[in-house]
Amino acid sequence: MKKIAILLVTCLAIASCKSDDEGGSEPILGNLTLDFKNVIENTDIELGTNTYTNGSAENYKISELKYIISNIVLINDNGEEFKYPVDQSYFLVNEEVSTSKSIPLSDIPSATYTKIRFGIGVDQSKYPIESGTANFIPTAEEAGMLWNWSAGYKFIKFEGTFGDADTPFLIHVGSHGATLDNYKEVTLDLSSNVIVSDSATASIGISADIAKIFDSTNTHSLVEKSDIQVDPENAPKIAENINTMFTVTAVFN
């Protein structure tokens, strides 16, 4: 610890010297918040009460919606990428917990960013410990986002009821073993540039159009299949749909 402290002091000393010499070219760090909103037809979803209709004309209610956001990368106006430290880059968005929808990122190099990229779920190729994902296990486990019979994460947990009889539906998408990998990354253009600086916390509003889980690249009917877990046919289609549901709606500097 002492060593690290000394190292840090040395670094800082060097850094401050340098910035004096070069006129402040050293990175200034700032904060950025990602604000997720889960919507259907541009309105925040409501768990339990509201009835929605999917593209297959099926009525449904949502009881639970959780998903994992990971591997956040910011891309600046020069096309350079800033990769948020991977071991701190796993977040659980839970519709029920409003604080979970606001993801605070810190120590981001000050720059003008034009794009954001993130993963939905956990990258299977990086499951092993070197990625730093292991410390996400307790969070995922407490939220029921870990399949206890398998060493894998549920990337999304989307549950509710549908039809007149309130039949339960259950959609859990994840990766299993070495053959079924449903991890996906999405790159979004920012509606306007986000300027990260040390003077204010910028924020990016990201909207997730939950209706697209059923209807986007693929169409999914709950009457046809209402329980999607380890499903090599339907889970990849749902994963493709989920990959299209995010848009950047606002940027605050």
Binding site: Y127, A134, S150, A151, H176
Partner: peptide, 26 residues
């Protein structure tokens, strides 16, 4: 069945499985 693809993650299964050690990481 090959569900664990990496040794580091294998212990999650017996630790959390209800019919094995039935415990949480926390």
């Amino acid at each position: 069945d090959g569900v664990a693809t990496h040794l580091d993650l294998q212990p999650i299964i017996p630790i959390t499985a209800e019919v094995e050690m039935n415990e949480t990481f926390s």
